[in-house]
Amino acid sequence: MRRLFWMMVGAGLAVYLVLRGRDLLHRLTPRGVQEQVAAKGHQAAAGFGDFAATFRAAMAEREAELRRELNIPATTTT
Rank of each mutant, 00 (worst) to 15 (best):
M1W: 12
R2W: 04
R2I: 08
R3T: 12
R3K: 07
R3W: 08
L4S: 12
L4H: 07
W6K: 03
M7K: 14
M7A: 15
M7I: 08
M8P: 08
M8W: 13
V9R: 00
V9E: 05
G10A: 10
A11R: 06
A11Y: 01
G12P: 00
L13D: 05
V15I: 02
V15M: 09
V15N: 07
L17K: 08
V18G: 05
R20H: 08
R20T: 10
G21K: 00
G21P: 00
R22D: 04
R22Q: 11
D23W: 04
D23T: 06
D23R: 11
L24A: 10
L24K: 06
L25K: 05
L25G: 08
L25H: 11
H26A: 15
R27W: 10
L28R: 02
T29V: 06
P30T: 11
R31L: 14
G32T: 00
V33W: 10
V33Q: 14
Q34R: 15
Q36R: 06
Q36Y: 02
Q36L: 07
V37P: 01
V37G: 03
V37D: 08
A38N: 13
A39F: 02
A39V: 10
K40A: 11
K40N: 05
G41A: 15
G41I: 07
G41H: 13
H42M: 15
Q43R: 04
Q43I: 12
Q43W: 07
Q43L: 14
A44H: 06
A44L: 15
A45M: 06
A45G: 05
A46G: 14
G47H: 05
G47Y: 01
G47N: 09
G47V: 01
F48W: 15
F48Q: 15
G49D: 12
G49P: 05
D50S: 12
D50R: 15
F51H: 01
F51K: 01
A52V: 10
A53T: 04
T54Q: 12
F55Y: 06
F55D: 02
F55G: 04
R56S: 11
A57W: 03
M59Q: 12
M59W: 12
A60H: 04
A60I: 03
A60Q: 03
E61Q: 04
R62M: 07
R62N: 11
R62K: 07
A64I: 06
E65A: 04
L66F: 02
R68P: 02
E69V: 05
N71W: 02
I72A: 04
I72C: 00
I72N: 01
I72H: 02
P73V: 00
A74F: 08
T75I: 11
T76Q: 03
T77M: 09
T77H: 10
